[in-house]
Nucleic acid binder design. Structure first.
Length: 593
RNA sequence: GGGGGUGUAGCUCAGUUGGUUAGAGCGAUCGCCUGUCACGCGAUAGGUCGAGGGUUCGAGUCCCUUCACUCCCGCCA
């Protein structure tokens, strides 16, 4: 009890009948009958209907109070007549008869309605975020976020992890995303960088002997935004463990995620032991390293089919003879679908910038036949082979794409989603987790024509690390893994390379000299030379976890004060100009051109 | 950096083939109404049709430029 309230707006019920109470909150809604006025008073906790009629001298005054004014109301708890009880309200059995009131906070005319389910422009929402956040849905999302983070902390501590803070001002690193830079006043011409993740620090924590670390860690990356990617900053559940291998990390994370998702969602988990899918298999079967396993469609390679003499699909055959590949998706029992369905898919594929998706359905009269625009090019024997390869039956349809490997993968990844959505094959009431494992250590960058780290340069390569064959670096796999849920990448992690000599060799393959490594990763490489334990970890994205659990498509819906797509805070006017004096002190001058 | 969508009253939107004075709901203001819970009824105010330019007898509507918001590609180890 405070001078402002004896109860919160969700608390009153019949047990409080006839009590004199004080409530404080916002005017959510008024229903003015002229001689009788209802006010729904709202606070963080709930809603209470308050009522006053013209017999009270304050009636005329209270009638004029606009919505979203902050009021303190004093009154008596009254039992509602049976027929006026509001079942949908926690406090719906009672109402407060207003005896007195005080305006605690006036409001100007509102730029947006708080009591409304209608959508309104992102610009208004972000500028008046404090009003937007009063609305029920987003208010509850933010509460959910808090509860999720709190649950994670408790669980992690239960598993024996301790939370440690790491610096926000650190050094720029050459790998990865663009850094946010902070000029140093005391070191003219030098810059700090905000951490893209506490990657090096968490490994240093392991070298320091702390064994199990976690942190709800802010991460800063100066890259462009997406619906599921905040510009600038986001949060990770960063964790790292010593004396573990990959499966030990998986065990902890699976337990955490299963408990977390069971607690905060009524949706079912498709697997409680998450499937492990090798990267190469994921790229083949799903066209992506973030497969949505709710989707039953799978991709198969059909390139060999187009080398047969009894297949006359010349366009594909010609491309295949020049090194292209063919892959396809089979859909079950779709041969009776309308022509417009198939043409719609083909048209969609062309809009995606491809040359389209060839298709035929398998039917049987006397013999097996392929029905569809390209069906005539396939012999019965070749059809049997395709059916065997793709596990297809009579009545099924085969969609095919031909081209460069990366293009085919990309198109069929999208086509898998498109076709599954058209056929309504995805169960929206399910969470489907999986691990993608065995990532390649390196990849070939077509643009720079150089070998680069495909993920994290600190990952441990697979194989005999004391005697590793580095002659074919593109064939090297790493103990590098991703966790994926419903097609959304939640996190990357790895068993780290704690052997400095091996690390120098790997960096050399990616074009970094020993001197560069010493210079750019001095903290890390130095530490690894003084008795580093084997260690590994992962860093699931908090924002995306909350998005999944809140069933939201946009990260702003689970972020209290987000920036817009251009990385501006419309409420605080950030970024902003600064005084010339500030710049001078920092030894910075603006370029004039 | 590139592509798509949107922009009309404080908010959400409609606006036909280019044609008279640009409309509705919510909100605001005023009036009526004692059981509503999206209360109801009536009235009033409120518009640089994102901005600039062009075509036309005439532009919210067509064209060009530009700005803002948003979605996607690039980017995000």
């Amino acid at each position: 009890m405070t001078i402002y309230r004896t109860h919160c707006c969700n608390e009153l019920n019949l047990r409080n009948k006839n009590q004199k109470v004080k409530l404080s909150g916002w005017v959510n809604k008024k229903r003015d009958h002229g001689n009788l006025l209802f006010i729904d008073l709202r606070d963080h906790y709930g809603l209470t209907q308050c009522v006053v009629d013209k017999s009270k001298s304050i009636f005329k005054e209270i009638e004029k109070i606009p919505l979203e004014t902050v009021l303190k109301i004093e009154g008596i708890v009254i039992e509602r007549e049976k027929e006026t009880v509001n079942e949908s309200l926690e406090t719906g059995e009672v109402e407060v008869r207003i005896e007195n009131f005080e305006i605690l906070g006036h409001t100007k005319e509102l730029p947006l309605p708080v009591f409304s389910d209608q959508e309104y422009s992102e610009e208004i929402r972000l500028k008046y975020r404090f009003l937007d956040l009063r609305r029920k849905k987003i208010h509850n999302n933010i509460i959910l976020r808090s509860k999720i983070i709190s649950f994670i902390r408790t669980e992690m501590q239960k598993y024996g992890f301790l939370e440690y803070q790491t610096p926000i001002l650190t050094s720029s690193s050459p790998e990865g995303a663009r850094d946010f830079l902070v000029p140093s006043r005391l070191n003219p011409g030098k810059f700090y960088a905000l951490p893209q993740a506490p990657q090096q620090f968490k490994q240093l924590i392991m070298v320091s002997g702390f064994d199990k670390y976690f942190q709800i860690a802010p991460c800063f990356r100066d890259e462009d935004a997406r619906a599921d990617r905040s510009p600038g900053e986001f949060y990770q559940l960063d964790l790292e463990m010593s004396f573990v291998e990959q499966e030990d990390v998986f065990k902890i994370v699976e337990e955490l995620f299963v408990n977390l998702f069971k607690k905060f969602s009524s949706k079912k988990l498709l697997h409680e032991k998450f499937p492990r899918i090798p990267f190469d298999e994921a790229m083949l079967k799903y066209g992506s390293d973030k497969p949505d396993l709710r989707n039953p469609l799978e991709i198969s390679d059909l390139t060999e089919i187009f080398k047969r003499d009894d297949v006359n699909f010349d366009i594909f055959k010609k491309l295949v003879s020049h090194g292209s590949i063919v892959r396809g998706i089979v859909t079950k029992n779709t041969s009776e679908k309308s022509r417009s369905f198939f043409d719609g898919i083909d048209k969609w594929a062309k809009e995606e910038g491809s040359s389209g998706l060839a298709y035929f359905s398998i039917e049987k009269s006397e013999n097996l036949i392929a029905k569809g625009p390209v069906g005539k090019f396939f012999s019965e024997k070749s059809l049997k082979e395709i059916m065997k390869l793709m596990n297809a039956s009579i009545g099924d349809t085969i969609f095919m794409s031909c081209g460069k490997k990366s293009e085919v993968e990309k198109l069929l990844y999208k086509a898998r989603n498109k076709i599954a959505n058209e056929l309504n094959l995805i169960d929206d009431n399910v969470f489907s987790f999986c691990w993608v494992v065995d990532y390649p250590m390196f990849e070939f960058d077509e643009n720079t024509k150089k070998i680069e780290f495909s993920h994290n340069p600190f990952s441990m390569p697979q194989g005999d690390t004391n005697n590793l064959d580095l002659s074919e670096p593109l064939k090297l796999k790493a103990f590098q893994y991703d966790i994926v849920c419903n097609g959304i990448e939640l996190s990357s992690g790895a068993i780290r390379n704690h052997k400095p000599n091996l690390m120098y060799k790997l960096f050399e393959i990616a074009g970094y000299s020993k001197e560069t490594v010493n210079d750019k990763f001095s903290g890390m490489i130095n530490a690894l030379s003084y008795g580093a334990p084997p260690h590994g970890g992962i860093a699931p994205g908090i924002d995306r976890i909350v998005m999944l659990l809140a069933d939201e498509k946009n990260i702003r819906e689970v972020t209290m004060f987000p920036m817009n797509q251009n990385a501006q805070d419309l409420m605080m006017n950030a970024p902003s100009e600064v005084d010339d004096n500030q710049l001078k002190e920092l030894n910075i001058s603006k370029r004039k051109n």
